[in-house]
């Protein structure tokens, strides 16, 4: 993957639902590697995802993918994006293969190309023997993995994960995180991983802390902690948000 393809620039992005301001003047860049977007529920993470995926129309500010304005790219920008939403979006009555082929078709892949792309990913995410199983029969962790496989099967440069570990046990979360890290490092994908869990960001990850629609911190996790003369991320988060730990 070309690194310039895997870049996102968000500049002074604001969004409001009527009178309620959900995002204020958000600016950050994404490049290959994992960027953790940390914020409690209601911080504006899902609104930011909806703007990046163009589910919502931009009101103020600018988003650029690979240096092209998102407004100009319009729906074509979605070819560069893989998205996993917080809410499960698989069709429960269809099997794994049918779900993947449906998504592949929406990205211009025929059934055989969809499966050819998906099978190595299924193998990487430990789902290679579940192709004919109804999605309804998969456990929560496997559904999440399948959604990530689906998000990656058209080889996007940018992967957006909105609380992908929600509902997983600690072992499942660690395993999912590790698998995504390996895949994205190998393929030079820019990942934006939204979470409200303080133990998910790694010391080397880029970190964005979003609180009440404002970006309070932007930088490498370890460096941000050191800059504020603190011991760990929970302290940094509490310090910046002046709230008890989520």
């Amino acid at each position: 993957m070309n690194d310039s393809q895997a870049s996102v620039k968000v500049d002074k992005l604001s969004f409001s639902y009527g009178q309620r301001q959900a995002l204020r003047d958000i600016s950050f860049n994404l490049s290959p590697g994992i960027t953790m977007l940390l914020g409690p529920n209601g911080a504006g993470k899902s609104t930011l995802f909806a703007l990046l995926t163009q589910l919502y129309r931009q009101q103020q500010g600018e988003i650029r993918f690979a240096d092209e304005p998102l407004k100009q790219l319009s729906h074509r920008a979605n070819a560069k994006l893989g998205v996993v939403f917080q809410q499960h979006t698989l069709d429960m009555d269809m099997n794994v293969s049918q779900n993947l082929c449906y998504f592949g078709a929406l990205h211009g892949l025929n059934a055989s190309s969809s499966l050819a792309q998906a099978i190595p990913l299924l193998s990487h995410f430990g789902l290679d023997d579940r192709l004919q199983d109804k999605v309804r029969t998969l456990n929560t962790g496997h559904k999440r993995r399948l959604e990530i496989v689906r998000a990656l099967m058209h080889s996007p440069a940018i992967l957006l994960l909105d609380e992908p570990s929600a509902g997983l046990d600690p072992a499942g979360r660690r395993s999912l995180m590790q698998t995504v890290r390996e895949y994205c490092a190998e393929h030079r994908v820019a990942v934006l991983w939204a979470t409200h869990l303080l133990d998910e960001p790694g010391a080397e990850d880029q970190l964005l802390i979003l609180h009440q629609g404002q970006l309070l911190a932007n930088g490498q996790c370890q460096a941000l902690i050191a800059d504020h003369d603190l011991q760990d991320l929970p302290q940094l988060f509490a310090h910046l948000t002046e709230e008890p730990r989520p």
């Binding site: 979605n78 809410q87 979006t89």
Partner: peptide, 11 residues
């Protein structure tokens, strides 16, 4: 169910 989002994030 959220599956409308899958449709709308197609290129």
């Amino acid at each position: 169910m959220g599956s409308m989002k899958v449709l709308l994030v197609s290129p």
